[in-house]
């Protein structure tokens, strides 16, 4: 069975829409995040979603500056809290396409608690994590995904704890779309992001996005020599057990692509208050409803 990443279908009018903003990224030359912003932009182009119907939410870190470089709505929030901000936006107006972008420190360190809960809730949010296995903006400390033995400013003798495995974590937390991209493969990455946006439910797209300044271990070359595409390896993304096996492959061969996809009701589907459409379009207040006071008599 050939199971590729889903081919995204355009959902908006076929216009040439500008998704790039006039703000130029301030990332280091060669930073992996350039590939990611290109991948997100290309996904939006493919889907032709009107920019004003997209909100990109981020936290803090080099990669969290991403919303400034696109022309959609954006919310550049505080460290580790992009997910709950995005959940609030989605619940207030679930017709918006809500995308969260950020780094491994932001998402798998300080913000990890929120991520697990967002995944089990299955809100229709797409989360793109630029995972460079290091803290860049604070000049090179170990991150939650730094591998054992990695020598950094905060771990001069090498890291002595196991890294977070984002894909395995997402599978166990109940994410319904779990993928991994590589900023060295923008085409695949944009397909994975577009697939995540189209997927009804929580999509995690973990992206190897090398830090060229502070991580001399997990470089572009490191990944180029190791990554292989799951769709070329006949992986069935509906098989959770196979997905778990693939999630634990690390070493000379590292899989990228779509690990797992499942159809489940979203949180918005199940939330009674949203049955009559987005909250922001609903009538507010209780004018004249004095019967509400009866319970206090």
């Amino acid at each position: 069975m050939s199971v590729a990443a889903p081919v995204p279908k355009p959902v908006g009018p076929s216009l040439k829409v500008v998704y790039k903003s006039s703000t130029k990224p301030t990332w280091c030359p060669g930073c992996g995040d350039y590939g990611v912003v290109a991948g997100v932009e290309r996904a939006l182009q493919t889907l032709q979603v009107p920019p004003h119907e997209v909100v990109i939410v981020s936290g803090i870190g080099c990669s969290s500056n991403l919303p400034h470089f696109l022309s959609t709505y954006g919310f550049h929030s505080i460290h580790g809290r992009a997910i709950p901000v995005a959940e609030g936006i989605k619940l207030a107006n679930h017709r918006l396409h809500v995308i969260v972008t950020g780094g491994d420190g932001d998402g798998y360190g300080i913000g990890l608690g929120h991520l697990i809960h967002a995944m089990r809730r299955n809100l229709d949010i797409t989360y793109v994590v630029m995972n460079n296995e290091i803290y860049g903006l604070t000049t090179g400390q170990a991150s939650p995904t730094s591998v054992m033995g990695h020598k950094t400013k905060s771990t001069p003798q090498g890291v002595i704890e196991e890294p977070v495995n984002p894909v395995a974590l997402a599978l166990s937390a109940g994410a319904t779309y779990v993928a991994r991209g590589f900023s060295g493969d923008v085409k695949l990455l944009s397909d994975l992001v577009a697939g995540g946006i189209q997927h009804k439910g929580f999509a995690l797209v973990d992206v190897f996005s090398p830090c060229v300044t502070y991580n001399h271990l997990n470089t572009f070359d490191f990944f180029r020599q190791r990554v292989y595409r799951l769709d070329s390896a006949q992986h069935d993304p509906t098989d959770l057990q196979k997905a778990y096996q693939k999630a634990h492959e690390w070493g000379t061969k590292i899989p990228i692509g779509l690990f797992y996809r499942a159809e489940k009701p979203t949180y918005e589907d199940l939330e009674e208050a949203l049955k009559e459409g987005p909250l922001v379009h609903q009538k507010a207040g209780i004018r004249g409803r004095t019967e509400i006071l009866d319970e206090f008599v």
Partner: peptide
């Protein structure tokens, strides 16, 4: 919540609670 069409979200912690409220307010409610 049902009668008044209010979304009541029990968050995983207070960090999430206030950030969710900020997100919802940003989106216009």
């Amino acid at each position: 919540a049902r009668a008044l069409h209010i979304v009541v979200k029990q968050a995983e912690d207070e960090l999430a609670a206030i950030n969710m409220a900020i997100g919802a307010s940003h989106a216009g409610v």
